[in-house]
């Protein structure tokens, strides 16, 4: 029995894996290829999985960012704002609450933690219509707050931080810091927070992704298309383009390139931060 890997026995598995990789990459490939085409290239009946003779990314990009007074650029900026504000805010709240639940025995702790666990099972979309009604009475609909405020609620983040803080921060270290005269807040900031870093990055990434991906909430809350995030914006364009097939052939190429451009920031974020989030993701999965 040797531990040496035997590649020839694993070959069928790897071929199978190869097929799956192709399947997962086909939509990206299609979008990358077809965003290089102009309208005739797109509708001319050429090979849909290969480049046309004239590859025109720059021209298409220029069109994308100038169409309708640069509306697409605004959508990207809005999405970025919503993702950062929602992500940072939700993470801040989750880190504090997770630490509080894990490290303090306060009155009402068990009950409130049970409420948080119960909230994990409430589908987020069930809250959209009543939140809309509440916000419309407060005059908050069709503002950026209508999208940012509901994104601050992340019970799963609290759960993840609680589990991580409970296991990764020994009480002895906290007690030692307190004995050295550090206050509770300083103990949290200088001793506990550095120990929680992998989970903080994970929660930050997960909540930023959730905000960036959000569709139902902004779709319901916003009517001014200058406030739309890119998901709602592209959905709008797609509805227009398929609504009247004849007149809007150029809009299709904008949608294709728009889809490609909109996924680049998150793909980069995931790849550059993967060392951090993979460690944190396993925490929630194991328990």
């Amino acid at each position: 029995m040797s531990n040496r890997p035997r590649p020839q026995r694993n070959l069928p598995l790897q071929v199978f894996l190869g097929f799956l990789v192709v399947y997962f990459l086909v939509p990206f490939w299609w979008v990358i290829v077809n965003s290089s085409k102009d309208a005739p290239g797109l509708f001319g009946g050429g090979n849909t999985l290969w480049f046309a003779d004239n590859i025109d990314y720059l021209g298409n990009l220029q069109q994308l960012f100038t169409y309708d007074n640069g509306l697409y650029g605004r959508w990207i900026l809005n999405s970025t704002l919503y993702a950062i504000a929602g992500g940072v805010g939700a993470t801040l709240l989750a880190v504090m609450a997770g630490y509080g639940f894990a490290k303090y025995r306060f009155a009402g702790r068990r009950f409130s933690f049970a409420l948080v666990l119960g909230a994990l099972m409430v589908p987020a979309t069930a809250l959209v219509i009543p939140t809309f009604m509440m916000f419309s009475q407060l005059g908050l609909t069709n503002t950026i707050w209508a999208v940012i405020l509901p994104s601050l609620l992340n019970p799963f983040g609290v759960y993840l931080m609680h589990v991580y803080a409970r296991d990764a921060i020994p009480n002895e270290i906290l007690d030692a810091a307190r004995a050295d005269g550090a206050g509770e807040v300083r103990t949290f900031l200088q001793v506990a927070l550095p120990l929680m870093r992998p989970a903080v990055v994970t929660v930050l990434l997960l909540s930023a992704v959730a905000s960036w991906n959000n569709y139902f909430l902004p779709l319901a809350m916003l009517s001014d298309n200058r406030l739309f995030p890119v998901t709602v914006g592209l959905g709008l364009w797609q509805g227009i383009a398929s609504g009247n097939n004849a007149g809007t052939t150029s809009l299709w190429s904008l949608i294709i390139l728009g889809a490609l451009v909109s996924v680049i920031p998150l793909v980069i974020a995931f790849f550059t931060l993967q060392r951090h989030w993979r460690g944190g993701l396993s925490v929630g999965g194991l328990r």
């Binding site: 997962f24 086909v26 990206f28 991906n213 797609q238 996924v263």
Partner: peptide, 17 residues
């Protein structure tokens, strides 16, 4: 990789395919 793609964009992409 698809996890990093908004579900809306994923649906748009497959709609094309």
């Amino acid at each position: 990789l698809p996890y990093a793609i908004p579900t809306v964009i994923g649906a748009v992409m497959w709609g094309f395919l």
